[in-house]
Amino acid sequence: GTLHLNGVTVKVPSLEKAIKAAKKFAKKYNLEVQVHGNTVHVH
């Protein structure tokens, strides 16, 4: 999967790991997580 954090793109081995990391990051910075196919966006 691919993880987008505020314009930074990170390749992640699995989508589940990407979503987990995204949710952790989003919670910390009070951001929103959106999943588009195998790409996770945090903004």
Rank of each mutant, 00 (worst) to 15 (best):
F25C: 11
T9E: 08
N30R: 07
H36C: 12
N30P: 02
V35C: 13
A26P: 00
Q34M: 12
N6L: 15
H41Y: 15
K27V: 04
V40Q: 02
K20F: 06
N6T: 05
A18R: 03
G37Q: 05
F25L: 10
T39P: 02
H36I: 15
H4L: 11
P13I: 13
H43L: 13
N30E: 04
K11W: 15
L5A: 05
E32H: 12
E16W: 12
T9L: 14
K27T: 06
L3F: 03
N6Y: 12
P13C: 15
G1D: 07
V40H: 03
N38H: 08
V12F: 15
T2Y: 15
N30K: 09
G1W: 15
G1F: 15
P13V: 13
V12G: 02
V42S: 02
H43K: 10
L5T: 04
T39L: 08
E32R: 06
T39H: 15
V35N: 01
K27S: 06
E32S: 12
H41R: 13
I19D: 00
E16Y: 10
Y29M: 03
K11N: 10
E32T: 14
V40N: 02
A22Q: 00
L3S: 02
N38K: 07
L31I: 05
P13R: 13
K11H: 12
K11R: 13
I19H: 01
A18P: 00
A22P: 00
K28I: 08
E32P: 03
I19F: 05
L5F: 15
V33S: 01
V33Y: 05
T9D: 05
Q34I: 14
V40F: 03
A22V: 15
N6A: 10
A22T: 03
K24T: 06
L3N: 02
L5Q: 02
H41M: 14
G1M: 10
V40P: 02
Q34K: 11
V12R: 04
V12P: 03
T9G: 04
V33N: 00
K20W: 09
K24F: 10
V42L: 13
K24I: 10
G7A: 06
K23L: 13
H36F: 10
A21M: 14
G37M: 05
H43I: 13
H41K: 08
H41T: 14
L5W: 15
E16L: 12
S14P: 03
L31A: 04
V33T: 02
A26R: 04
S14K: 04
T2G: 05
G1A: 15
K11C: 15
K23D: 01
K11L: 11
G1Y: 15
L3H: 03
K17D: 11
V40C: 05
K17S: 10
V40S: 02
K23G: 02
E16N: 09
G1V: 15
P13A: 13
V10K: 05
A21N: 04
K27Q: 09
G37S: 05
Q34C: 15
Y29N: 03
H43V: 12
A22G: 02
K27C: 11
K24W: 13
